[in-house]
């Protein structure tokens, strides 16, 4: 279990990195935290011709407020930095719930926020969370730069809109509206293990305590994280009730997901879990929205 040989580049600026990526094209692969890439390389399942290591670019690791009142997170910010940043937890309690579930502390000390999103593992938490929090992703290459909504970023399992010369540079999380609540519910076989199914909900109430916005994202039950359309249709404009949560849960389980059977769980079980977890997460999220947490 040793990786194949590769060329290694360690740029010290974003500009230098983008130049190198442009030069390498399909041969190049970004090395961020490496916590998914290196195991795949050790198994020789991933065999990149060249790695462009972003770990020597300090300017890519930051958490800073945006002028809109949200947060901008640099792509190389370690997961553990996000996990333990009081500002992050205060503004986005969902991240406070999610981060400790991402593998184990040793992995989070090395793994990066942007790397996890760009890796686009359908069982990964952060791709889904970026959708749940309606993140804006800043993407740069040598020749172009663009903003892509997280909702539009993921195209398939381990696939995104990123071109080979692209780099996900920054993740911008817009501020929550008042009366917003969130909840993350996950079932995995073991603590720190892959989610068999998970649900992240971010909901907002209006002044009359009616649902104004509901973002329910489903993890590990499709090729990409799935933002539920039915949740929005059923909940927005309505008073949140237990019956409505049940209806959403059933609608999602029946129509919006495509879970797979593997050696750990059947598709039926995953479907059942989604139903349970959607209900649980909506109940808690609305409760928090009411309490203004």
């Amino acid at each position: 279990m040793k990786p194949v040989p590769f060329n290694y580049f360690a740029p010290t600026s974003v500009e230098e990195a983008l130049d190198k990526l442009a030069e390498l094209g399909y041969d190049g692969k970004i090395l961020a935290g490496g916590q998914s890439l290196v195991p795949a390389m050790n198994f020789r399942m991933a065999r990149p011709g060249a790695l462009v290591d972003l770990n020597n670019i300090p300017e890519l690791a930051y958490i800073k407020p945006t002028s809109e009142g949200g947060l901008a997170i640099g792509t190389m910010t370690r997961d553990s930095k996000v996990e333990h940043d009081p500002k992050v937890i205060e503004m986005f309690p969902l991240l406070g719930e999610v981060m400790p579930n991402i593998a184990h502390a040793q992995i989070r000390n090395r793994g990066t926020f942007g790397g996890s999103i760009a890796h686009a593992d359908p069982a990964g938490q952060l791709p889904a969370i970026s959708i749940a929090l309606d993140a804006n992703l800043f993407i740069q290459s040598k020749s172009k730069e663009r903003w892509v909504k997280a909702t539009d970023f993921f195209t398939g399992p381990f696939m995104t809109v990123l071109d080979p010369d692209d780099m996900l540079v920054e993740i911008v999380l817009p501020p929550h509206l008042p009366h917003t609540g969130s909840s993350y519910q996950q079932v995995s076989r073991q603590r720190g293990g892959y989610a068999q199914a998970a649900v992240a909900s971010v909901v907002t109430l209006d002044d009359q305590n009616r649902c104004k916005e509901a973002r329910v994202v489903l993890i590990s039950v499709g090729d990409t994280p799935i933002l539920s359309a039915r949740a929005k249709e059923i909940l927005v404009g309505q008073k949140p009730t237990a019956e409505a949560f049940k209806e959403v849960a059933q609608a999602i389980a029946a129509n919006e997901i495509d879970p797979a059977t593997d050696i750990h769980a059947t598709a039926d079980y995953r479907r059942h879990l989604v139903e349970v977890l959607v209900e649980r997460s909506l109940t808690i999220a609305f409760d928090r929205a009411k309490k203004g947490v």
């Binding site: 076989r189 068999q196 750990h264 769980a265 059947t266 039926d268 079980y269 995953r270 059942h272």
Partner: peptide, 11 residues
């Protein structure tokens, strides 16, 4: 056993 298997039994 695993949770999925227990679920199958109940189903």
């Amino acid at each position: 056993l695993n949770p999925s298997r227990i679920f199958e039994y109940l189903q």
